[in-house]
């Protein structure tokens, strides 16, 4: 177990160092852009996964956190605020906002579906409102655009990505992380074991919102120009869910794998089928949700187990689950 952990840690370090060295090895600007996109999507999916994956509270309005992050960071940065502070505030603003819905929703123990459609509605409110208040394109400061440097952006966003994954990992491996999963699996049972479900859900929401905002900060720092309300638009809610499910919901590496897969597949599809790629992603997402709820991570596990079974004694048949309507009542 510890050896396995050591190996994965070593792999991780090697991976990060390698990514750090990529620009030195004469990588093209387009490759760096692709990698930055992967970083940002990894952050986005990881931040979503903390609430949606570990706590089971499906948020269909993550764009609200991301968008608020972009808005805050962009405003502060163009206003001359130092970058680290801009990132920090970009994380904090969505947290404050998330509490507006989180505190009442979780205190009332609203059913999960109410929370979900509530988030959907909130993100729409922001999308429309921002579109009304700021119906224009936002640009990076002139100095930045005239002398756009990709390298510092690459390194800073890489660092933010490592930070995001680190936070997710630390959270999951802590007692808190256990509590989150307990709440997801059975809220009443968790409470009876002394887990404060309200506090846990709220914490997961806060962390998710903070990292979602940070992702927005990274995007605002990276992207030279976009419509203010673009970052609040529905795709920014849909994509983190898609990536996380494709990768493997409720795991640390799932969103990372999902994001890489998503970006690569998107690049590949856009070249071949153009706009049809969105249809394909819709189909892919549905297929994963229905038939492979653990995503690529689970697929990999299955393959590994299959191989392992081939080499060992044939395992006993799985317990037959009775057919028919053997469900607990509604």
């Amino acid at each position: 177990m510890t050896i396995k952990k050591g190996i994965s840690l070593a792999l991780l370090v090697i991976g990060v160092v390698a990514l750090g060295l990529v620009p030195r090895m004469g990588a093209s600007e387009s490759l760096l852009n692709l990698l930055i996109l992967m970083f940002i999507y990894t952050m986005l999916a990881t931040s979503w996964n903390i609430l949606g994956g570990y706590t089971g509270q499906v948020n269909l309005g993550h764009a609200a956190f991301f968008g608020l992050g972009t808005l805050t960071a962009r405003m502060l940065y163009t206003g001359g605020c130092p970058l680290p502070l801009a990132f920090l505030v970009a994380g904090v603003v969505p947290v404050v906002f998330s509490m507006l819905i989180g505190v009442p929703a979780f205190r009332l123990r609203l059913r999960g579906d109410y929370f979900t459609i509530g988030t959907l509605a909130l993100s729409q409110i922001l999308y429309i409102t921002i579109g009304n208040v700021l119906p224009k394109i936002t640009y990076l400061p002139m100095a930045d655009i005239q002398n756009y440097q990709i390298l510092p952006r690459y390194y800073i966003i890489l660092a933010l990505t490592v930070f995001t994954i680190g936070v997710a990992y630390a959270l999951v491996k802590s007692r808190l992380g256990l509590g989150l999963v307990a709440v997801r699996e059975n809220e009443d049972a968790a409470e009876s074991l002394g887990v404060n479900a309200f506090a846990h859900k709220l914490l997961a929401l806060a962390v998710s919102a903070f990292l979602g905002g940070l992702t927005g900060g990274a995007y605002a720092y990276y992207q030279p120009s976009y419509y203010f309300n673009y970052t609040f638009s529905p795709p920014w809610s849909l994509e983190p869910v898609t990536m996380t499910f494709i990768g493997g919901v409720g795991t640390v590496h799932g969103p990372v794998i999902g994001a890489i897969f998503f970006v690569l597949l998107k690049e590949w599809l856009v070249l071949r089928v153009g706009e049809y790629h969105l249809i394909i992603f819709g189909v892919l997402f549905i297929l994963v949700v229905l038939f492979l709820p653990g995503g690529l991570v689970e697929a990999w596990e299955r393959i590994r187990r299959l191989v392992a079974r081939r080499t060992t004694v044939k395992a006993t048949a799985p317990t037959a689950c009775a057919g028919g309507n053997n469900l607990p009542g509604n």
Partner: peptide, 15 residues
């Protein structure tokens, strides 16, 4: 409910 929300979300995107 949770899974149907996800499936519906994906289906909506597709349609």
């Amino acid at each position: 409910i949770r899974t149907s929300l996800l499936v519906g979300f994906g289906l909506g995107l597709m349609l």
